[in-house]
Design a binder for these strands. Sequence first.
DNA 1: TGATGTGATTGTTGAAACCG
DNA 2: CGGTTTCAACAATCACATCA
Length: 237
Amino acid sequence: ADELMKTMSASPGSTAAYWSHELYRGPRGEKISVYYGRSLKTSENVAQFFLGKPLLGFDMEWRPNATKSSGTKANVSLIQLACEDRIGLFHLALHRGDSVEDIMPPTLRKILESQDVAKVGVAILADYTRLQKHLGIQPSGLIELSHLHNLVMYSGSRPEMVTRKMVSLANQVQSHLQLPLYKGTVRTSDWGKELNHQQVVYAANDVYAGFRLYHVLESKRLAMNPVPPQPDFAERG
DNA sequence: TGATGTGATTGTTGAAACCG
DNA sequence: CGGTTTCAACAATCACATCA
């Protein structure tokens, strides 16, 4: 816990705080729960917590330098989901077996492929491509936060800057959630082995940041006059 | 008719930025 | 680093109107 507070409360030599999901509370004031699925069975149970939610944060981790041929678990090591009060970490790389049925929880698959569940994140199309290529699944209902960011930042003043150009998650968190997002070496660590505390916190932060970011961006969009239309889904049909 | 120009659409290629 | 996406620049293509 000391280690956690250290990484999340201040950068070396300063008192500045970092953005964290632990700064938030659920609808009844409770802390955000983080569920870590290490087996297919547990992950399937965790995925069921997210059934029926209309909008989820979505993110993925994979092994840095993973090449096309380094295998499914190296290319899709961890999948994360977030709703208001829960974060789910699905560690596919730890699930026993190598076939898609062995490592992909059916409910998670259903959620990802459902058009009725919006999934929000940054660089979400690249995640889509990875899931399609390495697991043969067809996600839909994907919302790219960079599009929404560009829309609320520029549609009033510089419409020509409303593009699909990528804006990093860290920059968006800084702009809309006030605090910097911790950037360390965790990001490029080995996501194939059982996660340490730092990795759990990082993975949870990333996906929850996307969820919170969406709501801030969306309320900014709705406050505009005139209200610009929502961007298209990222997967384009 | 046949040749030529215009405008819109489609395709390719490379740089820059993002992801892990 | 390897893999992806996006945009701009440029080329190629096509429909079709115009002109000698």
